[in-house]
Design a binder for these strands. Structure first.
Lengths: 193, 193
DNA sequence: ACAAAATTAGAACAATTGTTCTAATTTTGT
DNA sequence: ACAAAATTAGAACAATTGTTCTAATTTTGT
């Protein structure tokens, strides 16, 4: 692992622990035993560090979505896979989710990338629901406007569950996954057959 | 309106416009034509300003919830009232909603107050759903665990819709309310009769 | 082996920001 | 009217922080 990678790693870990607001580039450098000057040789601006972490998240996300190509599973199983997968990302990149609004206004490029991502995901989900409703595992009588609204709802939940969890005082170690799983399942509950 | 109130007003307006991260106490003072020293005579710490704004939000919220005591309306009507009322708060106190996680970690007293509030709201909603399911306007076959999860879901949506909206690049003036209304309605859609 | 390029540490810069301090002015209560 | 209290402006403090600059050291390619 070279210095650049180590910076990203340390930054991610520190941001997750202490939040984006309090961690400084000096602190990241100190934590890994290099000088602040050296850190800024590799990443000229703090934004560059965070943007690189976001790119990593996007890669991980894409990799996860590939798993949903094989469609020979029940919707229940697929849903569980999605829940597990998305939770892993939420957990690994806590600080991005928890400080998402702040990050997006601070670094517009991340906001832009996110919007592109959302547009893609939206289509994927709609077509997935269509597929499974033909198989009789998803309600068929749902108007398209509701369905689109439902997808939006799922995004709000998966993107901001962690914010809600943090604000409610939940600790990430223990029952976090159970809480997330519950929330996602409840959202899908009325639409499954 | 005395100086103290004017500070709160100006702070709210500036925070809503430019976000909590960039607005300084100096800027608030300048905007209203007083000195920074004077501002800090009235509010020793920036936190005190934000906490006072939060108290105002809490008061407004309580006042709104009073409206839900009169139960001689259909659930549909009540829901519309709730949507309008909560949107007004979201709009008036934009910056609190949009920077909620940040604020709660920065000022723990606000996090504490929020948690108390949520516990109260939870009960209110559950009993309201019970009432309306007896009247045949809300599904009766919903298990209590699901119902609690649904309430949680409503909270995530009403507390973080604005975050999602901001991140998706929405502008607050135009179609914001329609978007919010849609989202809330879709969430309730499967539970109404 | 050696010149060029990459990396590194540490000092220094520059700007920001919340907050405090002091002295003046205004307001209030009697 | 006048003393005490409240308010105000503006300078100054103190700490932080991202970033740059310089000179030294290490690594790389031939």
């Amino acid at each position: 692992m070279n210095t650049k990678e180590k910076i990203i790693d340390t930054a991610l870990s520190l941001y997750n622990q202490e939040g984006i607001r309090t961690v400084t580039t000096r602190q990241i450098a100190q934590e890994m035993g290099i000088s602040a000057g050296n850190l800024h040789y590799h990443f000229k601006h703090t934004e560059d560090i965070i943007f690189t972490v976001f790119e990593q998240l996007r890669n991980d996300y894409d990799q996860m979505m590939v798993l949903f190509q094989k469609k020979d599973v029940t919707f229940q199983d697929l849903l569980l896979e999605f829940t597990k997968g998305s939770y892993q990302l939420i957990n690994k990149y806590k600080f991005i989710f928890v400080n998402f609004v702040e990050i997006c206004t601070w670094i517009p490029a991340i906001g832009d990338a996110y919007r592109t991502l959302v547009a893609q995901r939206e289509e994927q989900f709609i077509s997935l629901f269509g597929y499974y409703s033909k198989l009789g595992m998803f309600r068929q009588d749902v108007p398209i406007t509701i369905l689109k609204g439902f997808v939006r709802q799922i995004f709000i939940i998966s993107d901001f569950w962690s914010s809600s969890f943090a604000v409610l005082g939940g600790r990430f170690e223990s029952d976090a996954f159970e809480d997330y799983k519950q929330t996602v399942e409840v959202a899908f509950y009325p639409y499954l057959i």
